[in-house]
Design a protein around this nucleic acid. Structure first.
Length: 484
RNA sequence: GGCCCCGUCGUCUAGUGGCCUAGGACUCUGGCUUCUCAAGCCAGCUACGAGGGUUCGAAUCCCUUCGGGGCUGCCA
């Protein structure tokens, strides 16, 4: 009875994969891994006007970056391929013909304009809009007449009377009366299949056992089930459905550009770690059941069950993602941190990638590791180490020009001249005795001007370590050039 | 309009009739620490949408209601 679990992630890449897509992919992946089953990655590109090769390639890249490896699909193949629906057109045609032959489906000659007009009439008569079944039982004469007019038919599925009842793993039993499920189109007049046909055929042929997908597809489920039935699949062989709650934007509307970035590519550029994105997304609609929140991918796999998935929608919260990202960054080893930080520094031109630069970066990472929430922040944090001339923002420049600041810097220069052992302890010792003990300043007022002179900003990594990393010559030069 | 789904702190959630004077995390506020910024630590604010039942007892069960969302396509 225990058939192997086979889940599938089947996006229709009409753009970059977004937060909602990935949350679904993550759950599909986690469930497959948890059960020791297989994850199938299938591209739903029956609408080739909107799905491009470029988007498909980016979707593949994004999943790989996140570490959501699939067992069957593009690049890896599998015995039930091909995994691009655009390459399976013959299969859909064949099934549509079978449905036609068996009377489960019929040719519909209604034009788009006619349908729209009738829908409008239904609406104004306060009836539920939907196909009225006009072509369900056409006589030979009528068919002849339509053909004579040059009409090309679409293939429409016949919904029988009755109801569809299924057990959603997340929502429990759901019932749809067929009077609210009109006959739907399986194939366009040009012979191209629609989602409703392709998705059901593929799930059956690819032996998918569990369909985890967004709840927006909940009301299309009876149509899928209808296709299974027409294909002759037995009830007990139907896939199980689990409709995941939405991930929404902060303002309670669907997540979009308006209320938070959606594209995973953006999060990557910004410096969110893949494991942080997965960790956070896992918490949107699922929880491990105890107070744990910072979990690894392995723990997610171990703990993930559909039973623990929530049924109510979740709001996406950037702040919390950032908090988790910060935790993940702090958990990185220095080598790993370095590996992940380098691309950002390279991209912004902070370093060219020379070995000497990389060494400086490696030495600097420990002091900034707990100060950043996004990897991209390594750029402003470390830039001062690699520029010839530092620049000041207005506030810092003004602060530096104050006479108190000038006095502090002059004193600091004198105190630092004799320091030959340029280690942060020695630097700190010299500055403390000169500025705190000598001038009687509070640490804050003592080190502030020095910090600005050396790093260019009143916000920086720890001062003494920064000066050590910068080196004696450059540190002194910056102090001196800050004197007016 | 119709059908379907959903409803615990601002947000994500724990909670499946007594362990709940509702726990954790993020955010926010205050404090400690402190060379800035962070990190860390401590404290605080704040929730069972509403109304009826059932029960000795309800966030948990039932009904109604209100609110939010989805679908209603020759998109997926």
């Amino acid at each position: 009875m225990a058939r192997e679990v086979r889940t599938r992630f089947a996006p229709s890449p009409t753009g970059d994969l977004h937060v909602g897509n990935i949350r679904t992919a993550l759950f599909d992946w986690a469930y497959a891994r948890h059960t020791g089953g297989k994850l199938i990655f299938r591209i739903e590109d029956t609408d080739r006007e909107r799905v491009t090769d470029e988007y498909i390639a980016r979707a593949i890249e994004t999943l790989k970056w996140l570490g959501l490896e699939w067992d069957e699909g593009p690049e890896v193949g599998g015995e039930f391929g091909p995994y691009l629906q655009s390459q399976r057109l013959d299969i859909y045609t064949e099934w549509a013909d079978t449905f036609l032959k068996n009377g489960d489906a019929y040719n519909c000659y209604c034009s788009t304009e006619e349908l729209e007009a009738r829908r409008e009439a239904q609406r104004s008569a306060n009836q539920a809009p939907g196909y009225d079944g006009k072509c369900r039982n056409l006589s030979d004469g009528e068919i002849e007449k339509y053909r004579g007019e040059g009409r090309k038919p679409v293939i429409r599925m016949r919904m029988p009377d009755g109801e569809t009842r299924f057990n959603d793993l997340i929502r429990g039993e759901v019932v749809f009366e067929h009077k609210y499920v009109p006959d739907f189109v399986l194939m366009r007049a040009d012979g191209s299949p629609l989602y409703t046909l392709a998705v059901a055929v593929d799930d059956v042929l690819m032996k998918v056992t569990h369909i985890l997908r967004g709840e927006d597809l909940l009301s299309s489920t009876p149509r899928q089930i209808r296709v299974y039935q027409a294909m002759g699949v037995k009830d007990e062989d139907f896939p199980e459905f689990a409709h995941l709650p939405f991930v929404m934007g902060t303002d309670n509307t669907k997540l979009s550009k308006r209320n938070g970035e959606v594209s995973i590519a953006w999060y990557r550029e910004e410096g969110f770690l893949p494991e942080a994105i997965c960790n956070y997304l896992a918490l949107l609609g699922w929880s491990p059941g105890d107070d744990r929140e910072n979990i690894t991918m392995k723990e997610l796999v171990d703990l993930f069950t559909i039973e623990r998935v929530n049924s109510s929608p979740a709001r996406f919260d950037m702040k919390k993602l950032e908090a988790i990202n910060g935790d993940k960054i702090r958990a990185l080893s220095i080598e790993e941190f370095l590996k992940r930080a380098l691309p950002y520094l390279l991209k912004e031109g902070v370093i060219k990638g020379e070995a000497s630069e990389v060494k400086v970066v490696r030495d600097a990472l420990p002091i900034i590791q707990e100060r950043i929430a996004r990897m991209k922040e390594v750029v402003p944090m470390l830039r001062f180490l690699f520029v010839e001339e530092i620049s000041f923002d207005q506030e810092s420049a003004a602060k530096l020009a104050e006479s108190d600041s000038q006095k502090v810097i002059n004193t600091a220069i004198s105190a630092l001249e004799p320091v030959s052992n340029w280690q942060h302890e020695a630097i700190e010792g010299a500055l403390r005795s000169a500025l705190i003990d000598g001038l009687g300043l509070k640490p804050r007022n003592a080190f502030g001007p020095v910090r600005i002179a050396v790093t260019g900003s009143h916000i920086s990594p720890p001062l003494f370590e920064s000066m050590e990393l910068l080196g004696r010559d450059r540190s002194m030069a910056r102090l001196k050039s800050a004197v007016r």
